[in-house]
Design a binder for these strands. Structure first.
Lengths: 249, 249
DNA sequence: CGTTGGTTTGACTTCGATCAACCAGTGTGG
DNA sequence: CCACACTGGTTGATCGAAGTCAAACCAACG
């Protein structure tokens, strides 16, 4: 359990910075307070430590309070796939509900903090609070929508388009959390991005080089700056943009 | 609404052939009866007719009673992705919960029948019936798990492996429904399979030809017979099977 | 410092996309 | 009844995007 330590029981949803992104969204203060009650203590997870592993028995969902996680699954054949990056307000462990065991590994990409939500208690409480119940259903459905969008990416887009979609997704999520949508720091390696997008890390590097050489983004190390959001979106929309040079001459 | 017609109100979950695969699984007879109550009438959908379209307002989930559906999403750029095939007992429309609009098109692959489940009523009822509530949560989570497995396929497997995984998935689902796992009829075209697996239809044909030439499956038209289940599984497990000939000489 | 993990770039290979031709059913209208 | 168009499936030839292998680079850090 190295890297997993409980912290002081100060977990009020109503005062949480990400309350408008989490299960508590739209809840009346009294209801949010009841949700807080079933979250006895937050948990700190150190960078590179696992919050849970695939196969472990399922007890709780975890809401990311701050920091960032990645979730990965792997096949018997040893192939691995990164299934998502979770930012504050997002839930970890929803793929565990169906079989009562976590289906993926969840690893912190930086020192992070989560709110454990005992699932049986959450189900019980959401029988009393219709809006909590609906929030949970909406969150699960939202994950399905996100996954289908990823399937569309992997099935239809080339490397540069996938990377553009990835940057735009991060951009949107940063904006939702009150940060600049056009300048942010990546929490993950090129290899992680590659695994997520179904590409090799070298291909990610080359796709970044391509975007950079067209002055669409500025990337140095993990720092990303989106210089030309419209062109980045146009790339995705499949518009053959004449201003984009495949190779600088 | 051509192709959509209501039929006589004989919708008892407790006597349904797929009750053990649907939301009604494990419900006490009295509870199953209450679930039936919120399903006033079944709906027949003709082959190639749409049950719903992306963007339409969400009212109901639909449980497939018999037949088969495909769901597809498409991007602004006109790219399309097939996100799933739904067989009896499976739910259509769960990606609509999050935004109150259907996120995909659902099209019948053969003359089919569905049970519309008004979602607001389902939520209300599941507040009273914990096991129904849990079934719904498990079903949503199960869809997430399925989608993550598809991401693993698209991100890591080559054409033959994806097709093998696809056949094995169909095989398992046929078996769950009481049919032979080793002989079944495809309801979809090669193009549909290709869209689902992120490949072109020609590649599907070639992958089929490959499996056929190794006597792993017998495929003529839509009829599939799995001749050698262990070799089909071994293919997926990534074991370099010396008995598999890449090209017949 | 030297080690290490992560990133970048180059050269070459390969798998699947693309384009094209052709075939088998199947339904339609003359 | 036949001619035909049409849809879906198969196979071949060619090409290109991404994978693979390799080398070098860089920043962080003990």
């Amino acid at each position: 359990m190295a890297g997993r330590m409980p912290i002081k029981p100060d977990t009020s949803c109503s005062s949480c910075r990400v309350r408008e992104l989490c299960l508590s969204v739209g809840l009346k203060p009294a209801d949010a307070a009841r949700l807080s009650e079933i979250i006895p203590q937050r948990l700190k997870i150190k960078k590179n430590a696992a919050l849970f592993h695939a196969g472990e028995p399922f007890r709780s969902l975890y809401a990311v309070r701050h920091g960032c996680f990645k979730t990965t699954i792997s096949s018997e054949a040893g192939r691995g796939q990164l299934t998502g990056f979770q930012m504050p307000g997002e839930l970890l462990g929803i793929d565990a509900i169906s079989r009562n065991r976590y289906a993926c590994d969840a690893v912190a990409l930086e020192d992070s903090e989560v709110c454990p939500i005992h699932f049986a208690q959450l189900e019980r409480l959401s029988r009393e609070l219709p809006s909590l119940q609906h929030n949970l259903n909406r969150t699960l459905s939202q994950e399905v929508v996100r996954d289908h969008e990823m399937l569309l990416s992997l099935g239809n887009l080339n490397a540069e388009e996938r990377l553009a979609a990835f940057f735009l997704d991060l951009s949107r999520r940063m904006e939702c959390r009150g940060y600049s949508p056009n300048a942010f720091v990546l929490r993950m390696t090129r290899e992680d991005i590659g695994s997520y997008l179904g590409l090799r890390l070298e291909t990610i590097c080359r796709a970044i080089a391509f975007l950079r050489s067209n002055d669409i983004v500025k990337v140095s190390g993990r720092a990303v700056e989106i210089l030309d959001p419209p062109r980045l979106k146009a790339l995705l929309a499949g518009k053959t943009d004449d201003h984009i040079a495949r190779r600088a001459i």
